[in-house]
C-alpha cells in the first residue's frame, strides 16, 4: 500500500515494507546524487536529478521512508564523494525533513489525491515536494552557528540556489516518477 492511499495512523507504522523501501530510497539517492548537472553562470550550484527521490519516496511511501531516504541517502552520498557523512550533518537532516514533509503531503492535499487523475496526483506530489524543499532546507541556516557563516553567504550561496534548483528538480522529476510508478503500483496491487 502506498502512502498516497494510507490513512493518518498507518503513515507511522514500521513494517518490512517501510524498511525495504527506506533502504532502496537511501541507496539510490546515495548512488545517484553524485550525478550533477552544472548550472551555467554559477560557481557552486548544480542540479542533482537524484534529489527528486527524496520527495518522491516520501510522497509515495510515507514520511518515515522519505525521512530515511533523505537523511541516510545524503549521508551516504556525502561519504562516497569524500565530504564525510557528518561534516554537514544539518544538510542531511534537512534532506530528511524534506522527505518527511513530502510524506505528510497526501494528508494535507488529499482533495487532489483521492480518486483523481494521474495528472492531478502528480501535480499534488510536485507541490508537496516543493513546499517541503522550501521548509526543510531552512536547516541550512544552522551553518551560521556551526560554521559561523555569514547570513548573506548562507542565503545567497546555499539556501536560495539549493531551494531553486531542488524545486525545479522536484517539479520535473517527481511527476515523471509518479506517472510511471502509480500505474505500476495499482496494477500490481501495492
Amino acid at each position: 500500500m502506498t502512502a498516497v492511499t494510507m490513512n493518518r495512523s498507518s503513515l507511522w507504522s514500521i513494517d518490512s515494507r517501510v524498511i525495504v523501501y527506506s533502504a532502496i530510497g537511501a541507496a539510490l539517492y546515495g548512488i545517484l546524487v553524485s550525478a550533477q548537472l552544472p548550472v551555467p553562470g554559477t560557481t557552486a550550484v548544480s542540479i542533482r536529478p537524484a534529489f527528486a527521490l527524496v520527495p518522491f519516496f516520501g510522497y509515495a511511501f510515507g514520511p518515515i521512508v522519505g525521512f530515511f531516504t533523505g537523511l541516510v541517502g545524503n549521508m551516504i552520498g556525502d561519504q562516497i564523494s569524500g565530504w564525510g557523512a557528518l561534516t554537514s550533518y544539518n544538510w542531511s537532516l534537512a534532506n530528511g525533513v524534506v522527505g518527511l514533509l513530502a510524506g505528510l503531503g497526501p494528508l494535507y492535499i488529499g482533495r487532489w489525491v483521492a480518486g483523481s487523475s494521474f495528472a492531478n496526483r502528480a501535480t499534488a506530489a510536485a507541490v508537496a515536494g516543493a513546499i517541503a524543499v522550501v521548509i526543510g532546507f531552512l536547516l541550512a541556516f544552522y551553518d551560521m552557528i556551526k560554521d559561523q557563516l555569514d547570513f548573506n553567504a548562507v542565503l545567497t550561496t546555499e539556501y536560495l540556489p539549493v531551494v531553486i534548483v531542488d524545486v525545479i528538480t522536484t517539479a520535473v522529476l517527481v511527476p515523471a516518477l509518479l506517472y510511471v510508478w502509480l500505474p505500476t503500483a495499482e496494477r500490481t496491487g501495492r
Binding site: 527528486a52 525545479i168 520535473v172
Partner: peptide, 22 residues
C-alpha cells in the same frame, strides 16, 4: 544552457533505475 531541458534529459535514466529497484 537550459537547465530544465538538461534535467529532462535525465528522465530516461533515472526513472527506469528507480522503478526497477522498487
Amino acid at each position: 544552457r537550459n537547465p530544465i531541458a538538461n534535467l529532462a534529459r535525465q528522465v530516461p535514466v533515472v526513472v527506469p533505475t528507480v522503478v526497477n529497484a522498487i
